[in-house]
Design a protein around this nucleic acid. Sequence first.
DNA 1: TCTGGGGTCCTAGGACCC
DNA 2: TCTGGGGTCCTAGGACCC
Length: 413
Amino acid sequence: MIGLIDCNNFYVSCERVFQPALRSRPVVVLSNNDGCVIARSEEAKALGITMGTPYFQIEYLIEKKNVAVFSSNYTLYGDMSARVMEALQSFSPETEIYSIDEAFLRLEENFEETGNKICKLIYQWTGLPVSVGIAPNKTLAKIANRTAKKLKSSVFEMSDAKTRDEVLRETPIKDVWGIGYNSTKKLNALGIFNAFQLKNFDRRHARKLLSVTGARIVEELNGETCLPLDLAPAPKKSITCSRSFGGHVESFADLHDALGCYLVRAGEKMRKNNLTARAVTVFLATNRFSKQPQYSNSHTIELINSTDSTRELREWTRRALAVIYKKGFLYKKVGVILQGLRSESAETIRLRGEKDYQKDKRLCAALDQISRKFGRDAVRFGCRSNSKNWQMLAEHKSACYTTNLREVLRIAN
DNA sequence: TCTGGGGTCCTAGGACCC
DNA sequence: TCTGGGGTCCTAGGACCC
């Protein structure tokens, strides 16, 4: 059997751990730039605040209903997530970390009892509430988890076929894992509205209508296993870093500064995974919601030598940006994608510039160390301007309680 | 005024090869 | 240039996930 452990309203719960007074208050967490709502407490859901709603559209409600608002604090959520996953590993060697707040787990026996133990241990270690769904495969475990949340119970087991059919009848098609907006429309047009109907849908038709992904879903709803546990996730194929700006940016210099910061982040991530890149893409875009003239473009440069040097990549990203930059537009976003990633050990010695490259490697290693120890802004890679109009908005950010000694929670004085 | 970021997988179609 | 079958690789775009 497969268990799906999912933290309840994860980001909100992380904030509540450190501010228990918020436990009975509606709470929301916003996306980067304080743009949209991306997590809601049950109380906030009850107020009709939906996922992805732009913050400015509900600001009146926030004030009127005394909703607590947070900017997203990924340092905190990432650290809390690691603690949850560590607790989980003690229950089974076969664990797949699926996302920041979810993991699949193979369970051998005493399913419901184990589920309850899991909830208890995670709460004891982290203060976070979780739900566990248990079923024969991943797709059904997802549905079991959704049911646990719906019933406000921490564990829901769906091992017998009769229970499954009952639950599937109550599960709208759009809530099936892998069925998104477009597939829902297609299935609805054929009169299929719930998971039980999809289970009995002709597999060949499913394959035709929704490709192999759809066919697999039908199989799994029937109790077969098509999606194995992914115990050792494949190495990353690409690393992206991009942000929308708080304001807008016009000049090449400002865009390049912003891009430089994202590249540093992407480079750190790449080196942490012992990878090098063989190609780099830069993209930029104006604000798609604005009535101003629109422009977006991207440019990819294939590298002769794969590299993990931020200094070297900085030169390539500057060139790529120069290819697509057009004067006169109000830009809202720029980003970098490192592609063709492969293990550092697969690198070959360069015919030219090997010595400089080795020097770069030492430089990057030193910078990575400094930034780990003293924070991301301790040293910068040649940012020229102090322009603040590309900085992100984060007006409601909580402290990094668990990762920064200076921000540790204080009790009384 | 204000609308997130980072990924993966699948398919169709074109280019090219023998 | 025509004839046919069988295959690989690459890319763009779509769909989906959290």
